[in-house]
Amino acid sequence: MNLGIDTTTPPLLSVNDIGVDYGHHVGCTDVSFDLWPGEVLGIVGESGSGKTTLLNCLSAQLAPTRGTITYETRIEGARDIFTMSESERRMLMRTDWGLVRQNPRDGLRLGVSAGANIGERLMSVGARHYGDIRNEAAAWLEKVEIDVQRIDDIPSTFSGGMQQRLQIARNLVTEPRLIFMDEPTGGLDVSVQARLLDLLRGLVTRLGLSAIVVTHDLAVARLLAHRLMVMKDGKVIEQGLTDQVLDDPQHAYTQLLVSSILQP
């Protein structure tokens, strides 16, 4: 899982002093980090820790109250996400970024076929050959281990795990460099979780993706993330190498989290 992460190149994503307030209530604050190509950052914390707020802000769905986020675009170098025009931002989110939502229903078009779901991003950037689009969709169904025969079925006929894998395929078809994942295995059966995690590990390694994964499940974080950020009450209370944070937690809260995991 460990790729050569070259920190001499500019970081893919640079987050500086991000804070999001909801009126008087602090959603998250004082968050700063850099993310390089090929790195996976895990954000863990319990409910109310601010991790989802942070993810929504990082993925440009929520404007921050303070701070800036800079992304190293393919052609134009480092750009501030929130000073970009909405059109540019939406284009970025459709091509170079992916967003895998916790509930796949929120990230799919339930009324159109699996093939159309995967092909949509291609069509939105100008793909106009039906046969090619369909072949590409079929190839991705194979990659996420969904039976290709189901290419014309609508996602409401799929199981939760299949829907989640379809959501992943829908996001990866444009070969994004950065994926945001919000509790990607939440709500799935354990065996289904295992399969999904295996798929994600493989894709991240093979495609050299960067990812930011929010999860409350430390085991998922250990499996997927190179680095970990622990959040509590809107703040990052500890961060570092994943296995170091989990095996040698320094902060009281991290120690509490780690010691609370049930062992089957």
Binding site: N2, G4, I5, E39, D198, L223, H226, L241, Q244
Partner: peptide, 23 residues
């Protein structure tokens, strides 16, 4: 962290007491 991972990738191997099996 990136540096430590690079060292572990190229230079330093570790055989722990127990295998951490990935499903």
């Amino acid at each position: 962290p990136q540096q430590i991972l690079a060292v572990r990738k190229y230079t330093m191997g570790y055989v722990s007491q127990f295998l951490r099996a990935i499903p």
